[in-house]
């Protein structure tokens, strides 16, 4: 087990290192100099040089990369070119919206998909299964931002059950915060729930065909008991993989959904920064998202080992 964890951990560090290099290199090749962009075309050369020094743009690239990575590791994400405030502070405010939204959506997706997938698998080929599968075909095809617009139209504008947009803020209480995130979370979750339902169903059906399921029936377990006691845990491996992928998709997906609901999350920050060419913010936010994705994949790998004893023992 320890060996497996160390191996995954090494792979996590390596992935992070390579990803940071790619991001840094891409931002480096971006045309235009942030300092001249900030000061306009009529800037004096001396002011420009002073600003470049202040922003740390006058040192060699290798040193800049190391400063950037070192800063990230200690929680210092640099200073925004446009706002002149620490990026870490800006990100912290925004992530308090985006991360809860992604998690909310992920939980919704799991809460919908597990029962639906188990239901469909246990009624394979019967009307219940066909109904669920038909619904998932529709769900998978549903663009989340379009669905978000439709939700606003019905539940915010017509029925007035939820706010049409904006974020109440966590200081107004948990319920107020969750209420403003509910429609966005549903919009994000439903298409993902459709995918997860299909994966859950097919993973269960694969397991149902395994020899050990027949052994379990021969012991005297009913079909339902067999599914719960022996099927579910074996079906979890592909399901965990997809849950891992969904988190990264949902986290990135908040960027778009925030546009529909006017939520002050990472998405808004990143679009503002792109148009202001505030590349240090773009760089840090992208690195943060990539870090979250890699971390989740690491956790999924650990979850595999919990589920499957074959991964725990040294080979």
């Amino acid at each position: 087990m320890l060996r497996y964890m160390l191996k995954r951990l090494a792979s996590l560090v390596l992935s992070l290192a390579v990803a940071s290099l790619i991001i840094f290199a891409l931002i480096e090749v971006a045309p235009g100099d942030p300092a001249s962009f900030m000061l306009g075309i009529n800037a004096q050369p001396e002011t420009l040089a002073a600003l470049r020094a202040e922003l740390g743009l006058d040192v060699p690239k290798v040193q800049r990369y190391l400063t950037w990575v070192g800063g990230m590791l200690t929680g210092d994400f640099g200073t925004s070119y446009t706002y002149r405030t620490p990026v870490a502070e800006m990100v912290a405010d925004r992530i308090a919206v985006s991360l809860p939204l992604a998690l909310y959506a992920l939980i919704l997706s799991i809460l919908i998909a597990f029962p639906a997938g188990i239901f469909a698998a246990s009624r394979r080929g019967r009307p219940g299964d066909l109904g669920v599968m038909g619904a998932t075909q529709f769900g998978v095809a549903l663009p989340n931002f379009w669905f978000a617009m439709m939700l606003v139209l019905v539940f915010a504008i017509q029925l007035r059950w939820f706010p049409a947009g904006g974020f109440a803020g966590w200081d107004k209480g948990l319920l107020a915060g969750l209420t403003s995130l509910t429609l966005p979370a549903i919009a994000l979750a439903l298409p993902q729930a459709a995918i997860l339902t299909r994966v859950m169903r097919s993973a269960l059906l694969d397991v149902l065909g395994e020899d050990f399921m027949r052994t379990a029936r021969a012991k005297g377990l009913s079909a339902r008991q067999t599914l719960w006691r022996h099927g579910l845990r074996n079906a979890m491996i592909p399901v965990l993989t997809i849950i891992g992928l969904q988190f990264s998709f949902l986290f990135a997906g908040t960027i778009i959904i925030e546009q529909v609901f006017y939520l002050p999350g990472l998405g808004r920050l990143i679009f503002q920064s792109i148009s202001a060419r505030d590349l240090i913010v773009v760089e840090s936010v992208v690195m943060l998202v990539v870090f979250a994705v890699i971390l989740i994949n690491f956790l999924v790998d650990l979850a595999y080992a919990v589920v499957d004893p074959r991964l725990r023992s040294p080979k």
Partner: peptide, 13 residues
């Protein structure tokens, strides 16, 4: 590890 949207944002930036 790069979500599609993040990759697009990076390239667009």
């Amino acid at each position: 590890a790069f979500p599609l949207l993040v990759m697009a944002i990076l390239i667009t930036a």
